[in-house]
């Protein structure tokens, strides 16, 4: 474990990614304590609307006079919840499907993978829009739409890995020894596909945060006064260019967060899976 951290630490960018992800987690957890005006998540002060960044309001105020820094911090909570639940449920659906389909070839497996392909035959954002629109705008529906569009990626990755593992000597050996197939699958195959799953998850978090923000921006996600980042940017548009801070800070928050997950994902891939290491000596 410490060797792993050491290796990660050696890759400065990946380590920065880890720090960003940790910071996101912390601000999500401690938002009520960190935010200068935690009540501004629902409180409004129209008399102080659209004030530029100042000592009282480091990120300025929004069109309802609420403190933007506080709202961005609380936005981290929403983002963490959306991304974790969406990627988590996509993982719970996609990984078993990939495992089973890869391990037991047959028409049912073929059908499952074809189904995954159908989902992948649409640009994900387009599919997410169609589903979110169908379900109606709300955070649970965004999560549902994102999981529905993301599970095939896990299924595909795991399927490919299991397929190639199946022919490896140790898997054939366990089977020859009469170990039950389920045991083989869980104790011998699954640990060996853990790496691509972890890497996929980290990158998937970044992707999911971006797509969730896009849905929020299009009005298909959280509803006011929820301080969801994408929705804040959509609301901020009409106050440009005067209130530049209003659109800038939530966008920066998205950028930094996704960057964190992407850097971490890249680093994890290098550390955990030397085969995929970037072409760097």
């Amino acid at each position: 474990m410490s060797a792993f951290l050491k290796q990660l630490y050696a890759d400065r960018l990946a380590f920065a990614g880890l720090l960003i992800v940790l910071a996101l987690g912390l601000s999500a957890l401690l938002a009520p304590a960190l935010a200068p005006y935690p009540e501004d998540v629902y409180d409004i002060h129209p008399a102080q609307r659209l004030q530029p960044p100042s000592r009282q309001h480091p990120f300025g105020t929004n069109h309802m006079g609420a403190d933007l820094l506080s709202r961005v911090l609380f936005g981290a909570r929403i983002t963490v919840v959306i991304a974790t639940v969406a990627v988590g449920s996509a993982l719970l659906v996609g990984v078993p499907i990939g495992l089973v389909a890869g391990f037991y070839p047959g028409w049912a497996s073929e059908l499952l993978m074809r189904l995954a392909d159908v989902f992948l035959s649409l640009p994900q954002a387009v599919l997410a829009i169609a589903i979110a629109q169908t379900l109606g705008p709300s955070i649970p529906n965004v999560i549902l739409a994102l999981s529905i569009t993301y599970w095939p990626w896990f299924a595909r990755v795991v399927f490919a890995e299991v397929r190639s593992l199946k022919n490896e000597v140790f898997v054939e050996a366990t089977q020859a020894l009469g170990v039950s197939p389920w045991r083989t699958l869980l104790l011998h195959v699954l640990p060996n596909v853990a790496t691509p799953i972890i890497v996929r998850s980290s990158i998937g978090m970044g992707y999911t945060i971006l797509t969730a923000a896009m849905l929020g921006f299009l009005g298909l996600g959280a509803q006011p006064p929820t301080p969801e980042w994408g929705r804040e940017i959509a609301e901020a548009r009409q106050y440009l260019p005067e209130a530049w801070w209003y659109a800038t800070f939530p966008g920066l928050a998205i950028f930094v967060t996704v960057m964190g997950f992407n850097l971490l994902g890249d680093g994890l891939r290098d550390v955990l899976d030397p085969r995929l290491r970037r072409g760097r000596p």
């Binding site: 970044g206 923000a213 994408g230 940017i233 440009l240 530049w244 966008g251």
Partner: peptide
């Protein structure tokens, strides 16, 4: 390139508008 994959395109669009069109 890493930022390219991390930036929300609607936000990039708005920032470009802010700089090149409005400012």
């Amino acid at each position: 390139t890493v930022s390219g994959l991390a930036i929300a395109s609607f936000w990039l669009a708005i920032m470009l508008q802010l700089l090149f069109s409005m400012e």
